[in-house]
Design a protein around this nucleic acid. Structure first.
Length: 718
DNA sequence: AGCACGCCGACT
DNA sequence: GTCGGCGTGCTC
């Protein structure tokens, strides 16, 4: 019987910790169980990843596990080994990844809360308190709060000292609170044997593509495919394969970019595959999340559809992983634990010997290159979209909407039959900054290193990074000069311009500031479909919608905003965005695309406009080769964050010197401040490592990261 | 991540 | 002289 448990914690620590298993729960603790453990004067949830009968070399007293939270482990051994590998490959903490794999309510943590003692109650009367102490006592009469909550409520500089003093005098007590959740556990069941009808009405090319992939179905080995085809054809193939997989009694993990999880998609899935589908998305309530999670774990769902986090769902017996819209950047989790669901899909498919199908009609050049070179590209050729394209040159910011475009739009709106137009422009707000003409003062966010955007409709200044807003300012607080608008205008300006040019027309602005709920989104889009809106104006937020009614005219204004990003994939992002914006163009009836840009020759804009992925790819891959960027090298972006810039500077230099010690050919850039050097009060310092040799880079990363103490996030590109 | 400990400047 | 800020280090 094992006496010790090896436990990982949901903290940014690479270590595992050893705890003593108390006699009474020796046969209760299992690998994969959640346990409650004391940790540095706190009690937190840990995950048992191993059992052992003797401790190894720890020369201090080990602490006891406080409580075992599961009768039935939350993690299977195979899931543990997958997440271990995945977190290592992502350079993030295993414990944090495990924590992210569970519904949040499954991870109880004790927090030290402060409450008032009887003496404290009395102390208010006998007037033995100073002003600061009184303030705290008054707050605590209303309830018990955590220290951080008190700090937020009471703006005293030396708060922790005052609290300590009150505690010493016995007026204030510490309480540890812990909300534990009982898990309702049902028995695991086998795959529900549903015999799904095969669809023999598929056309030749689709049947062929599906055949190539499903040939290896019964073989139980890892095989990757890249499906380069239109959305419609991809979906047909996916469903065909899903049925085949379910018929051999295996399960399917279907990953989609965040935004595509709409009601329409849900309907499509349940219609085609029955009730055994679990759909995960960000708008599930805590309760729903728990029940879906348990449903998946116990095998009551045979297909799981979800965004990037679904790669961490407890699905077993996976026969197929689908990674649709592979190019989509939302597969990257940027917050800790940071990971790329695409990498996770590859690892999980490898580990469980399942098929992996990535698919897109505009693949990332990295994935396309690899698929071609390793021979797993399945391509269904498509005619380029039939559309008339006009690219107008206009200096960025000079004209809002080019005269010629106004005429074109006017023509469409004035005809006998209303012919609605969609216009894209990708900057929120009215202007991205306001400025005092006398002293050059520009209002900036208190907590982020960015200017405050001015939003005219809501009459406020808004930080686009942390959401902090302040009321509209008219005069400069420094010199009382009258503030004027900065030159980089946003979508509200475009809206104003259109309204003045087309009075009486129904113009609706679709951006994340105006359209808040899913209901609003669907309401506007359906109104647009009924031709009750003349011009639908939107940002990227509109482009992301997948159920936009097709139109015959799309206008894109200044898509080059992305090209100014300090990112080696800026062209690819531009290509993808423009492509996405053209998605809502009708296939028939003389569709027209207008682009107004200061950079009409740029290949990413041009090839996207003409729906020519091939040409874009050829040019982009040339540039990547020339500059030695991925896929021709491996590039790691290390981001250090913290409140203290000095510490960050020192820590980031450590990486630099550590890489130099490894005598392998690794290019380093930085350390440098990230392009937005501070977000939510935390500074951001960046170091980039680049190398042809993957192994060398991994080794250097591992070596240097273990020396760095600050919070770090690694983004890998290859 | 939190949370305590310990070392240097501005004040009762 | 002390108080209290904040950098540093540790957590089985």
């Amino acid at each position: 019987m094992s006496r010790y448990a090896e436990v990982v914690l949901g903290l940014p620590l690479t270590k595992t910790f050893t705890y003593v298993i108390p006699e009474i729960c020796r046969d209760l603790v299992k690998v994969g169980s959640r346990v409650l453990v004391p940790f540095h004067r706190r009690e937190i949830t840990g995950f048992v990843v191993g059992l052992k009968s003797r401790k190894k070399g720890e020369d201090f007293e080990l602490k006891d596990i406080r409580e075992v939270l599961d009768d039935e482990p939350v993690f299977s051994e195979e899931f543990l080994s997958f997440t271990k590998e995945f977190s290592t490959a992502s350079f993030c903490s295993w414990g944090e990844m495990l924590q992210a794999a569970l519904p949040p309510s499954y991870v109880p943590k004790s927090r030290v809360k402060m409450s008032l003692s009887e003496e404290g109650e009395k102390a208010i009367q006998n007037d033995s308190l100073d002003k600061e102490e009184k303030e705290i006592i008054k707050l605590l009469r209303k309830g018990t709060y955590t220290r951080t909550h008190i700090k937020r409520k009471i703006k005293q500089k030396n708060l922790s000292a005052v609290l300590a003093r009150l505690e010493r005098r016995g007026l204030v007590l510490r309480q540890s609170d812990l909300k534990k959740m009982r898990r309702r556990v049902e028995k695991e069941i086998d795959l529900t044997p549903v015999q799904l009808e095969m669809d023999f009405s598929l056309d030749e090319e689709i049947r062929k593509a599906s055949g190539i992939i499903s040939e290896s179905l019964g073989r139980n080995i890892f095989l990757p495919f890249y499906l380069y085809a239109s959305r419609h054809k991809r979906e047909t193939i996916y469903f065909d394969l899903i049925k085949k997989i379910l018929n051999i009694r295996k399960r399917v993990l279907f990953l989609v970019p965040e935004i595509r999880l709409t009601a329409s998609l849900q309907e499509k899935f349940t219609k085609k595959l029955g009730e055994n589908v679990a759909l995960l998305h960000s708008q599930l309530t805590a309760k729903q999340r728990e029940s879906e999670w348990e449903r998946i774990r116990t095998g009551r769902a045979d297909v799981v559809v979800g965004p990037r986090s679904a790669i961490l769902s407890p699905l077993t017996n996976i026969g197929l992983i689908i990674l649709d819209d592979e190019h989509d950047e939302s597969y990257l989790q940027k917050e800790n634990p940071s990971y790329d669901a695409r990498r996770g899909a590859l690892l999980r498919a490898k580990q469980f010997s399942s098929l992996l199908i990535s698919g897109s009609s505009i693949p990332s050049v990295e994935a396309y290159f690899l698929a071609k070179r390793l021979g797993y590209l399945v391509e269904i050729k498509e005619e380029a979209a039939d559309r008339k394209v006009e690219i107008l040159r206009e200096k960025a910011g000079k004209r809002i909407v080019e005269e010629r475009l106004i005429r074109e739009i006017g023509q469409r709106l004035s005809g006998k039959k209303p012919d609605p137009v969609i216009i894209f422009f990708n900057r929120r707000g009215y202007v991205s900054f306001v400025i005092c003409p006398c002293c050059r003062y520009i209002p900036r966010c208190e907590r982020c290193d960015v200017t405050m955007s001015f939003h005219k409709k809501e009459g406020k200044l808004l930080c686009h990074y942390c959401g902090f807003s302040s009321p509209k300012m008219h005069t400069c607080p420094e010199c009382w000069g009258k503030l004027v608008f900065g030159k980089s205008f946003g979508i509200e300006v475009v809206e104003e311009e259109l309204k003045s040019r087309f009075p009486g027309k129904r113009i609706v602005c679709f951006d994340s500031d105006r359209v808040r709920t899913r209901k609003d989104q669907e309401e506007i889009l359906s109104r647009f479909g009924e031709k009750k809106i003349d011009i639908l104006l939107g940002t990227q937020f509109l482009a992301h919608q997948d159920n936009i009614p097709p139109v015959s005219t799309v206008v894109i204004l200044y898509p080059e905003i992305f090209l100014t990003l300090p990112d080696f994939r800026a062209s690819q992002k531009t290509f993808q965005t423009v492509s996405q914006m053209t998605n809502c163009l009708a296939k028939e009836g003389d569709p027209r695309l207008f682009i107004q840009t200061s950079n009409p020759e740029h290949y990413s804009i041009r090839h996207a406009a003409f729906d020519d992925y091939g040409c874009f790819y050829d040019q982009e891959i040339k540039y990547r080769r020339l500059m030695n960027y991925p896929p021709f090298s491996r590039l790691a972006e290390i981001l250090l964050t913290g409140e203290n810039l000095r510490t960050l500077a020192r820590e980031s230099r450590k990486i630099f010197s550590c890489v130099k010690e490894q005598d392998s050919p690794i290019e380093t850039w930085g350390p440098a401040l990230a392009s937005v050097s501070r977000i939510r009060g935390k500074f951001r310092v960046q170091v980039v490592l680049k190398s042809k040799k993957k192994r060398a880079l991994d080794r250097a990363l591992l070596k240097s990261l273990e020396r760095v103490k600050s919070r770090k996030t690694v983004f890998l590109h290859e």
